[in-house]
Amino acid sequence: MKFTMTVSPDFSPDHIAGWYVFNTWLQIQSEQSIHLELYNSFEKQREDIKADKIDLIYANPYDASMLIREKGFVAIASPFQKSDEAVICVNSESDYTCVEDLKPGCTVATADDPQVSTIGMIMLEPADLSSGNITVDEFKNYVMVAKNLISKKADAGFFLKEAYDDMSKFIKSQIRLIVSSQISIIRHTFLVSPNFLENSSLDEQGVRNLLNSMHETEKGASTLKSLGFEKWDNQDHEEAEFMIDLMDTLID
């Protein structure tokens, strides 16, 4: 049986090759045939999740909630010491120095990333800003968000912190960070579907053993490096459930 793995579309373009290497590593280690399907948009990926076309996924916390509670996916591991944070930036020449300087009627650029949009909107709350009194322009990726800031079409922009960190010096010189989230507890998670656990030769513990020991071999360690983290951190059922509870507090 052939399985399909995918990755949340908010991954850094620098890690595309890394995910293909990871897929190859996982196929060899698990002795399963796994196809890697990467998506440009969250919407298309969700359509395929709803159609039960996905068996393994490196999911953002927003989608992990739905996958665990509605689709019965099992959380296996998260990147070690790597949480999902968002930042708000403005044009470097603007007068905005803090969130409270932004006023109702302003325009905010964001990518099609529900989790970053959620955290970004929370960071705007101290300025009495919400989707009801600002204009939110959504773009395909974070480079487009930066371009809108640089061209002054947007007053502020939301970025996944990792995406902001990976931007070129040239782009960063034209935008300025005004606030960064420090949430720490919300992380991407590797999940497996009930279909995979039922029809592959690996059970849940087998998948956990593979990922949790991945950093111990040279090949595994180099593959992890290409994904941008050091090792996997085991995530048990309760930890995943608690993260979902926390996500629930962030969504109105």
Binding site: M123, V179, S180, S181, Q182, F242, L246
Partner: peptide
């Protein structure tokens, strides 16, 4: 003052 960007979490 509440620190910018932080979430206080307890259970």
């Amino acid at each position: 003052p509440y620190p910018d960007g932080k979430l206080i979490v307890s259970r």
